[in-house]
Amino acid sequence: MANQTPTPTAPREPVLLSSNYDGIREYDNPMPFWWTSIFWLTILAAGPYFFFYHLGVGSSLNDNYEAEVGEYGAILAAQLGDVEADTPTILTLVERPELRMGGAALFKGNCATCHGPEGGGLTGPNLTDDAYINVKTPEDIFRVITNGVPGKGMPEWGKRFSKQQVLLLASYVANLRGTKPGSAKEAQGSVIEPWPKVEAPATPSGSAAPTK
């Protein structure tokens, strides 16, 4: 077992060391060239990388994040223009499909678990009927989303989202009124006046305005 004869397939048998551990022998083969090369490369690349990102001009992860946020801010600003959280804006904003999509996504990700996927209400109140607890006007929706209802389970979303995002959300929610969800919670609060009639802004044809 200890004395290996070279196998016919091996071109040349490498140097066998004299060591013998419980019958295990060792060759003195050199390390493969590609192995040593890649190893040195990974070592040599480390220094410049560290210096570039930590002592040089490389951007930090937070820099990258700020840039990403800035880009989205620019997209939103371009989409919305200079808008105020007033009744006409809130009632009509989501008639533009690209903005409705934004409002719907925010609602789905953050509101649906309490107010139901279609706004019919779960632990939170029904948003599709005519009864409201803290809302008299569309502007109140913006206000309630921004400030929350302390002690009643409604969080302060103004701390979480930009004013423009809350506006999208408020517009989406205002337009849930009058829709027919699959499951609806009983009315809470008191019935309020219908939303005032406002002039719809020019929208692209075939807009995905919610059915009233």
Binding site: M1, Q4, L16, L17, S19, D22, G23, I24, R25, E26, Y27, D28, N29, P30, M31, W35
Partner: peptide
């Protein structure tokens, strides 16, 4: 691996130097 593989294969270990490094 360094014990049982060469035992089972009945072959010398490929490279002592590589082991060290």
């Amino acid at each position: 691996m360094y014990y049982f593989l060469p035992k089972a294969a009945d072959r010398p270990v490929f490279s002592y130097r590589l082991s060290i490094v």
